[in-house]
Design a protein around this nucleic acid. Structure first.
Lengths: 192, 192
DNA sequence: CGCGACGTTGATTTGCCTCAACGATTGTGG
DNA sequence: CCACAATCGTTGAGGCAAATCAACGTCGCG
């Protein structure tokens, strides 16, 4: 559990076992059952979460009452609502478990203290933030450039894990496609 | 010039005049004429830029040979190609001046050294990165939710500055709309 | 077993693009 | 300083990708 995180952190910074122990003091384990919410609309996000195991989705409800998925999180990803966490404004989004999940919670109250005690963590979170941002840049670029059919096929191809663990209509929502359309794309190739 | 940057930095961290002087040692002034490139496809981005005055755009060329604008930068914004800068892969994008512009260049070679000498800058760039990321999150969400007509009207309404300084077809490209479509939206309202 | 969650299929509609042709404005070199 | 070329914006006709609406099939689970 702690080793899962340590391995992850060491992709980005050098950190000793002792320092990791200190880091770990600021975390608490949080378990979520399938469909349980980590954050709901109107509440303010107060923590960053490291997903040890499981699968989450972040979504909002549009004017027509339709759920629109913004993002998925899966094993060994950091997940939060950055907007609400950083601005401390009420969240417009929900975060919900797609599977039973096990997380490490880094509460915002002790985030600053952690940075003081362990300044190299500042760098870690800057780098994480940069990586996350780059992923979004690529996503914007990608989504704009291609047809729905290509988006879906490429997504399935490059994220076979999600195709297995996430229902089809959620992938459609994430890609901003209707479930019917995705269904037709699949039918067309008389897949498999 | 330096005061423009100092004012900006002080929105995010406390920093003394002496420290700002130190920061400033790592920067050099760079001037761009209208249409001049700051970065071209295939080259690797080596710096972060603070726009003192002027207007930039970042774009790529899609498979059909069409320019697609990813982002604009304007006075008092940091601008770079984060993807190329951080991964040190060749850029897929161009960065070009829309107006004559004056920038401060923070070269990547001395970035690490600056962070060592002035650790609080690490925090500054983490926070900037977070803000930038949040802006993108909102943009993704927004772009997905609305029709082209609403996107354009809202953009013009919330960014009147751009409407004045940036040609209409570039705004269309940024919003992922055809110039013809934008033109028709404007005509429809017999605007003004 | 029955119900809710998920996926499929077909008919119809629509938002926006593409293509093409044509003004208006700007700017630049002879 | 004028002429001609870019650059930028407009207008209209036609087409298409994907949404919407509606109805039905199927599976898993309490």
């Amino acid at each position: 559990m702690i080793t899962t995180l340590a391995t992850y952190v060491r992709n980005y910074i050098d950190i000793s076992d002792e320092e990791m122990q200190l880091f770990y003091k600021y975390l608490r384990v949080k378990k979520l059952k399938k469909k349980e919410y980590l954050l709901t609309e109107g509440r303010t996000c107060q923590a960053r979460y490291f997903i040890i195991k499981g699968c989450l989705r972040s979504f909002y409800i549009d004017e027509k009452g339709v759920e629109r998925i913004l993002d998925f999180g899966i094993d060994k990803w950091w997940f939060t609502n950055y907007n609400s966490l950083i601005t401390q404004n009420p969240s417009e989004n929900f975060i919900q478990a797609i599977e039973n999940s096990e997380l490490l919670e880094l509460h915002n109250d002790c985030f600053e203290e952690l940075l003081l005690k362990l300044p190299k963590i500042e760098r870690f979170f800057r780098v994480i933030m940069e990586k996350t941002h780059i992923a979004y840049l690529n996503r914007i670029k990608y989504t704009r450039s291609f047809t729905g059919e290509k988006l879906y096929k490429d997504f399935i191809h490059s994220n076979p894990v999600f195709a297995q663990r996430v229902p089809q209509y959620m992938i459609a929502s994430y890609l901003d496609l209707s479930p019917e359309f995705v269904s037709k794309v699949r039918a067309k190739d008389a897949i498999k």
